[in-house]
Simulated scan of single mutants.
Amino acid sequence: MAPRGVGVGGAESAGFSEIPVRFADRSPVSRRLLVKPHRAREPAAARPQNRTLFVLNVPPYCTQESLLRLFSQCGAVASVELQDRPGPGTKPEAKKSKFFSRKPAEGFQVAYVVFKKPAGMMSALKVQEPWVLSPKEHPIRTGLQKWIQEYSSGIVDPEALQSDIDEFMKQHDKRVAELEAVAEAEDGVPDEEGWVKVTRKGRRPGVPRTEAHSLQAIQREKRKRAQKELLNFYSWQRKDAKREHIAQLRKKFEEDKQRIAVMRAERKFKPY
Rank of each mutant, 00 (worst) to 15 (best):
G10L: 07
P92F: 01
R203I: 06
K95Q: 07
R200K: 12
W147E: 14
V8N: 08
G10E: 14
G10V: 01
E192V: 06
V196W: 08
G9M: 03
K251R: 09
P28K: 13
R41K: 10
V182S: 05
A124R: 00
L231S: 10
R51S: 09
S214W: 12
K96E: 09
S97R: 00
D164M: 04
S152L: 11
P59G: 12
E186A: 12
A44P: 02
M1N: 12
K117G: 13
K136E: 15
K257P: 00
E186W: 06
P205W: 06
T210R: 05
V21H: 10
H138S: 10
S152H: 11
R225E: 13
K36Q: 13
A247H: 06
V110W: 04
R238E: 15
R41M: 08
W195A: 12
E42G: 06
P59C: 11
L68R: 03
R220Y: 11
E12V: 01
K257R: 15
F54W: 08
V77Q: 03
A11C: 06
R85P: 12
A181H: 04
Q227W: 00
A2H: 07
S163Q: 12
K228A: 14
R238L: 13
S97V: 00
S72A: 11
W131G: 07
S72K: 04
L144P: 03
D25M: 14
Q216T: 04
V58L: 06
K103D: 14
E106Y: 05
K116V: 13
E211R: 13
D166H: 13
D166C: 11
